[in-house]
Computed example of a mutant assay.
Amino acid sequence: MLPWVVRRTRLPLLSLRCAHCRAESATTGRGRFRVNANGRRLDVWLLVACVSCDRTSKLTVHERAPVRSIGPAELHGYRVNDPELMASTLLDPLLARRNRFALDWTGAWRLETPPARLGEAWPVQVEVAFDDPVPVRPERLIAHGLGLSRNQVRRRIKCGIPLHRPTSAGFTFTVMAGD
């Protein structure tokens, strides 16, 4: 079984309407949090900037949360702008739903495949794993990885999931011998 891995190369852009220029433009994380304390309550925002006009906006991470409800390590990560915490926060589907944005993964991932073995016996089984929740159509991923057209993929690939629907979960497929 050949292992393929889909890896993130950078954080995805956000599809979010800019409050200043009113364009449906992609925004990108600045890599900064803003933490505001009001008594025993905390507000935490993730700062993002519009690609078009560079205006900064805030995405709500925690709103009026009791101080004790946020762990000390997480709170420290917010205060020092921890890059790993920023990435995991940005990739959180609950944050996207609450702040009404979608992730644009175009150009933000790569497929790592082992070198092709020309003398390998057919059929060949491939296991695809995802390091991050990159939504990609299996049909396009397989075509890219094998250098085939999508029609050839439909003819030569046996897979247990629909090839035309985006997925971000690992899957396996079998490549049958060519015509």
Rank of each mutant, 00 (worst) to 15 (best):
A177N: 09
D54Q: 15
T56P: 01
R117E: 14
P83H: 08
Q152H: 09
V153K: 05
D92E: 05
P93D: 04
T167C: 09
Q152A: 04
P123D: 10
R55C: 07
R155L: 08
A121D: 06
A121F: 01
D82M: 11
W109N: 03
S57E: 15
A143G: 03
Q125E: 15
E127M: 13
E120M: 02
P72A: 12
A169H: 06
R137V: 15
V124E: 12
D54M: 10
D179Q: 14
H164S: 11
Q152E: 15
G170K: 05
R98K: 14
L146N: 02
P162A: 10
F171R: 01
T106G: 07
V136Y: 11
H144S: 10
D131Y: 04
P83Q: 04
V126I: 14
P66H: 14
K158F: 03
D54H: 15
R97E: 15
P138K: 05
P133Y: 09
Q125W: 05
T174L: 02
V136E: 14
E63Q: 15
A65Q: 11
P93R: 12
A96C: 08
V128C: 04
E63A: 15
R79W: 03
R55I: 01
L59R: 00
Q125M: 09
P66N: 13
V80F: 04
V128S: 03
A102S: 14
D54K: 15
H76M: 08
S88H: 06
T89I: 13
F101T: 00
A169V: 07
M86D: 07
E139H: 12
R137N: 06
D131L: 10
V175I: 09
P123Q: 04
A177S: 10
T113Y: 06
R117C: 09
S149G: 05
P138C: 12
E127H: 15
P66S: 13
K158P: 02
F171T: 02
G170S: 06
D132L: 05
G107E: 13
I70S: 02
E63G: 06
D82V: 09
S69R: 15
T113S: 02
I70A: 03
F130M: 05
P166L: 01
L141K: 06
A73E: 12
V175P: 00
M176K: 09
R155W: 12
E139K: 14
A121I: 03
G77E: 00
L146K: 00
A129L: 08
P166F: 07
E74G: 02
L148P: 03
A143S: 09
N99G: 09
L85T: 09
V128E: 03
A87I: 06
D104A: 09
H144K: 10
T89C: 11
L85P: 00
V153T: 07
N99H: 05
G77P: 01
A65N: 01
E63I: 10
V80H: 08
T167V: 13
P123I: 00
R155A: 05
R97N: 11
A102R: 13
L59A: 12
T89E: 01
F171H: 10
P83T: 04
V136T: 08
R110M: 12
A73N: 05
A169W: 06
T106F: 06
T167P: 03
E120Q: 13
H144Y: 04
T56V: 13
E84S: 14
H144N: 06
S57W: 00
E84G: 04
M176T: 12
G145L: 01
P166Y: 07
P138M: 07
G147C: 05
A96E: 02
S57T: 08
S52K: 11
A143W: 08
